[in-house]
Amino acid sequence: MGQMKAMMKTRHRVAAGALLIAAALGLARSASADSYPARSVTILTPFAAGSVTDAAARVLAQALTEQLGQPFIVENRPGAGGLLSAAAVARAPNDGYTLLLTTNSTHSAANGLFKNVPYDPIKDFTPVARIGSFASFVAVTPDKPYQSMQAIVAYAKANPGKLSYGVGNSTSQIVGEALKKRTGTDIVRVPYRSNPAVMTDLIANQIQIMIADFNTGIPQLKAGKVNALAVLTRDRHPLLPDVPTLSETVMPGYHILAWAGVFGPANLPPEAVKVLAGAIEKALNTPTVRQRFASSGTDIYWSGPKEFDAFVKSELVSWTAMIKEAGIEPE
């Protein structure tokens, strides 16, 4: 009888201890969710300061800092078509304190453009939220004899290999090579680390053509330093209503739209994903962020983790097909 009572007391102690442990774990999880972020968060971007991706990252970082009470710090890590920054985040601790604000360059186009991509764009990342899309236009300087897409094609055919275009991201490379293939022209591709450097050389006449994102191109357009010959969107863009689309000019049916979103390393804690996705959605609905995004040519398209995950997977297929259609071989 005494032994039985002792055993029952032991069982009660074990059960009570288990309940205490479970409660403690629950409180820890709750505290973890409530306290994230508990320190500064780094947002890596794959392009240089002054690029549209950098501009979007800085606007969003400021909004997240104000909302969540911890510094969100943007770190530019350009190079290798964005692979450097994406690989760094893929290898980072999955604690929510290293994020990647990136584009189709690293997660839709890289596998088709490069032979050796040091990460898996699907398996090595946690999609947090899509934030928007970037429009672009074909730019030349006003002193050139070709001031339309038709004139560029005619000049390129009459002067094979005499024109060059700068490549600061995957969108510009794909469009440039697709243009050459569809029109049967020989235009030299010149690679750069980011679009601001391309614009500098375009104005300096080191190259003759550029695919400019709106953030890089519109200030120079307003200053009279470049002209816009065609936008890459399906329809004419509200910011440039008088500029025709590529489809209207020399590439019927062709359009391309770069996208941007936020990722963390694989297996990011669900609590962190929830906090970040909610804060990003709230930020994108504030008048200040909407105005600043609009002025840089960033069209807001928010989607949460599940929808963004499906979008990234479908875009990987679409961009790979566009790259093959343009006749681009991985390098």
Rank of each mutant, 00 (worst) to 15 (best):
V89I: 13
S85K: 01
F263R: 01
P330H: 04
F47E: 15
Y97N: 10
L276E: 08
A277F: 03
F293G: 04
S51A: 11
P118E: 07
R290M: 11
Q208I: 08
A310D: 14
E315H: 09
V317D: 09
H255E: 05
V167W: 04
T171C: 05
P252K: 04
I207Y: 00
R11S: 14
L202R: 03
T53F: 05
A92K: 07
N104Y: 02
E75L: 06
A16M: 12
P78Y: 09
A279N: 05
V140E: 09
A38R: 14
G261K: 00
R236A: 01
T216W: 04
Q150D: 13
T288V: 15
A49R: 14
P219S: 06
A23D: 10
A61F: 06
T53S: 12
R234Y: 07
I300C: 07
Y254M: 11
R292P: 00
T233D: 12
V188F: 10
V190R: 12
L276A: 01
A48S: 14
S194G: 03
G217K: 01
S85C: 04
V175T: 07
E248T: 05
Y301V: 13
T249N: 03
I328M: 02
T233R: 10
I256E: 07
M1V: 10
E177R: 15
P287H: 11
L27H: 11
A212T: 08
N227G: 03
L60G: 02
M251N: 09
V153A: 02
Q70A: 13
G184D: 09
H107K: 06
A129K: 02
D309F: 00
I122P: 02
N285D: 09
V175C: 03
N159L: 09
A109F: 03
L113V: 12
S105Q: 08
L83I: 04
P330S: 05
A90Y: 03
D95Y: 07
S148L: 09
T141W: 12
G327T: 08
F125C: 04
R39D: 13
A204L: 08
D54H: 14
M149W: 03
P46Q: 06
A204K: 07
P241Q: 03
P46A: 05
K9H: 12
V128I: 15
Y97D: 07
D299F: 09
G2R: 14
Q67W: 00
M251W: 03
S30E: 15
A110K: 01
N159C: 10
S85I: 02
M1Y: 12
R182P: 03
R91P: 06
D299T: 15
A33S: 06
V190L: 05
A258M: 11
Y119W: 06
A129T: 08
W319H: 02
A109L: 10
I122T: 11
T183I: 09
G217Q: 06
G264F: 02
L83K: 05
T42K: 12
R29W: 13
P142K: 14
A86C: 08
S136W: 14
Y146P: 02
V273W: 00
T320P: 00
A63P: 05
R91I: 00
P127M: 07
A135M: 12
V89C: 06
T106K: 00
T245Q: 01
V188N: 08
D120V: 02
M199F: 13
A31M: 11
E66A: 15
A283D: 08
N111D: 14
G176E: 10
